[in-house]
């Protein structure tokens, strides 16, 4: 199938995603990832700590771990869709960063993303595909924040990679 041979124009892909996102907005809410990831964190933590997790007020007052939270399934869907796409287009193979500096940057980057999502209650997806199109004040605050952060991060990236 042609779809799995050539790279799709991102503009076409994003138009399709935007139309679907409007449907999702009607049914349950706009596309978001951070909330689902937080719930997964809670479920994993509960799996490891058991009832001990209840001693942390965050998991009682903000996110009560539950499998019946729609946002989790967006993330699992994205993984499944990408896996199907990669296998059918023969692009699936195990790859990993070669250099220690890359592992270090990914580790720090991942931690900052996790902390940032929880501090702000939003992720990049809800910023661009939810809050801002809903004209939420938070969307404009978040876009300003992510642009400033991406600029600052790019400067670090430049230093580390020496470009």
């Amino acid at each position: 199938m042609e779809f799995f041979k050539k790279t799709l124009d991102p503009v076409i892909a994003l138009i399709a995603i935007a139309v679907l996102d409007v449907f999702l907005f009607m049914v349950v809410g706009a596309w978001t990832v951070g909330g689902g990831e937080t719930m997964m964190t809670g479920l994993i933590a509960k799996g490891i700590l058991g009832h001990g997790i209840e001693r942390l007020p965050f998991w009682r007052l903000v996110y009560v771990p539950s499998f019946l939270y729609w946002k989790i399934y967006i993330s699992l869907g994205m993984f499944t869709g990408a896996l199907i796409g990669a296998i059918l287009s023969k692009e699936f193979y195990i790859r990993y960063p070669r250099r220690v500096s890359e592992w270090a940057m990914i580790t720090v980057g991942g931690l900052l993303m996790g902390v940032g999502i929880r501090l702000s209650f939003v992720c990049n997806v809800s910023t661009f595909f939810g809050l801002t199109p809903e004209m939420n004040l938070g969307g404009y605050l978040a876009v300003s924040g992510i642009l400033a952060g991406a600029w600052f991060g790019s400067m670090i990236y430049k230093k580390v990679l020496g470009i």
Partner: peptide, 26 residues
């Protein structure tokens, strides 16, 4: 929060979507 996220996503070379998608690619 998004300022920290912005730094993090550039360092990690992936955002919330691409971490899931790239994981799906192996």
């Amino acid at each position: 929060g998004l300022f920290l996220f912005g730094i993090g996503m550039v360092l990690a070379g992936a955002c919330t979507v691409s971490t899931w998608v790239k994981t799906g690619e192996g």
